[in-house]
Design a protein around this nucleic acid. Structure first.
Lengths: 135, 135
DNA sequence: CCTATAGTTGACGTATACGTCAACTTATTG
DNA sequence: CAATAAGTTGACGTATACGTCAACTATAGG
């Protein structure tokens, strides 16, 4: 376990986001860096949470949803049975959402393949014509 | 090919979006319904484009990106070789994006499974305790 | 000690994606 | 024909996710 601490610039460069975005994520409860004076010190935990947040964003989740998903992983108090059941429910919801996205991706990839195929066919046709004419 | 025409309400109900959203998508060039007087008449083509747009939205694409993706399918002028090559490029970009999303989904599903497992284990532990106490 | 660099907190601006009136026009029906 | 119902175009409001200053602080190096 590397117990590293990162400055806001280091982290922002590593994940290609602006310092402003990191502060915004903090305000939204996604990150909670320590402080040395007023300066933020990001831990490996923050780094992991950021990674998960950006992954969620790529999948079209809002920051609020990202926080919900990330907080599932949070190794905190497991809570009572009631909390655990709620968590399981949330997981089921988000999983259904993800499976829908999976189907959407499959379908989109298929139709992209189709478009690309007819595109290549057309290109070959044009190429054939050019060769014919320049013969 | 059903040559149906839909009112704005019909379409909005079918896809669970508001009429306002449909007008907005039209303003953004995603839809182009015919008119009877001033009233919009949506064709099956509009219906298909709407379906693709909503699919794109679920995957986190902006309406602008959705339009770009949808316009690929548009059976219009195939354009010259230059246009076709540009189209192939666009397809490659979006495909890379989708494959990244696919990896993101896989990873998220895996970690959700992990969380759910430990959640269920904890629930069983609690349940065992309860049985023990009420025995 | 002075400067350069990195960091901080407001505060306001902006792009996207609509929601929500208001005011008006058609279209249908008892 | 009068009253709903459904449609239209502005116009302004709102939530999200930051961008972009401004003004100030802290700290390390020459």
């Amino acid at each position: 376990m590397s117990d590293q601490a990162y400055s806001i610039q280091q982290l922002s460069r590593e994940f290609d986001v602006t310092p402003r975005a990191l502060r915004f994520y903090e305000a939204k409860g996604l990150l909670a860096p320590a402080r040395r004076g007023t300066t933020r010190l990001y831990s490996d935990r923050d780094r992991t949470r950021l990674r998960l947040a950006l992954r969620g964003k790529r999948l079209g989740f809002s920051l609020e949803e990202c926080r919900e998903i990330i907080d599932m992983h949070a190794p905190g108090q497991p809570g009572g049975a009631r909390q655990l059941l709620r968590l399981c429910g949330k997981i089921r919801e988000h999983r259904a959402d993800l499976l829908q996205k999976l189907r959407d991706i499959e379908a989109t990839l298929v139709s992209m393949d189709e478009v690309e195929s007819s595109c290549l066919v057309e290109l070959l046709r044009i190429d054939a014509n050019v060769r014919k004419l320049s013969q």
